[in-house]
């Protein structure tokens, strides 16, 4: 199939960007979306043009590196997949496909479709952990964890940190990302001790990084490649209220 690509090009963080149009010829339906871009880039390079810069690594939806807003949707039209898991069989000959980087104040554009998501790292730094240092700990089976709790923790721990939730949100809120980590740890006995301090610090950090507020629109859930439930955000709110009354969080 032949496609028209309308791609955001920006040669550096402080440069002004613009959309440019390219023709992609002889695209095969069994190509992945990123393989289609590889293919287009090969031609650009051969023609002496600058290839389109984009991030990717695992190409199986787990590392969270890739992320393109395709036709206005973060990670494209398919539910529950990252950009790298999208296949060209979902497109048709003659389609016009637009591609933009994640857009959010807290995710500055580095180059073309590449953005800097280190704000997510800083949210984790502020409290997204248990403080269990390397060493001797309780025997792993000494503390039982009900299967349901472990499953619920895992549902939230599955977040790949891609930032699609931020890109999809009209307020560029990082609530789903932050809430997923808070919920993961709040569901487990090992996460109890620092529970109040964690939520307080992480929510404050999220605000400090320049992410917007959550106004319950739900676009984050629709874009999330791991389909993390928006209930996490409700959980984060209740955890936060609980923390306000806790002595543990006041020490900070």
């Amino acid at each position: 199939m032949n496609l028209t690509l309308v791609v955001w090009r920006q040669s550096g963080p402080n440069e002004t960007g613009a959309f440019k149009t390219y023709q992609a010829k002889d695209v095969l339906p069994e190509m992945s979306f990123l393989e289609m871009l590889d293919f287009v880039n090969e031609d650009l390079i051969k023609a002496g043009d600058e290839p389109i810069q984009f991030d990717s690594d695992c190409r199986e939806g787990i590392c969270g590196s890739c992320g393109i807003v395709i036709n206005g949707q973060a990670h494209g039209p398919l539910q529950g997949v990252a950009t790298c898991q999208l296949y060209m069989r979902h497109f048709h000959d003659g389609d016009v496909i637009s591609m933009e980087p994640w857009r959010a104040k807290a995710f500055p554009v580095v180059h073309d479709l590449v953005v800097n998501r280190s704000a997510f790292d800083r949210i984790i730094q502020s409290g997204g952990y248990t403080s269990a240092k390397t060493g001797k700990h309780a025997e792993a089976n000494a503390i039982l964890v009900p299967k349901e709790d472990q499953e619920a923790a895992m549902d939230n721990a599955a977040c790949i940190g891609c930032g699609a939730c931020v890109a999809a949100c009209p307020n560029a809120s990082a609530s789903l990302f932050t809430a997923a980590k808070i919920t993961h740890l709040a569901m487990l006995p090992q996460g109890q001790v620092e529970r109040a301090r964690r939520v307080k610090r992480m929510v404050e950090r999220m605000d400090l990084e320049g992410f917007g507020n959550c106004s319950n629109i739900g676009e984050c859930r629709a874009a999330c490649p791991k389909e993390i439930s928006i209930e996490a955000i409700a959980k984060m709110r209740s955890e936060y209220l609980r923390a306000l009354g806790s002595t543990e969080a006041k020490e900070d």
């Binding site: 248990t130 390397t134 001797k136 792993a140 923790a153 721990a157 993961h184 487990l188 090992q190």
Partner: peptide, 17 residues
């Protein structure tokens, strides 16, 4: 043991083990 202490959600049986 280390990973469990960090909150790694390993698969469990109904017994919680």
């Amino acid at each position: 043991d280390q990973c469990v202490a960090q909150g790694v959600p390993f698969a469990r049986e109904y017994s919680g083990e």
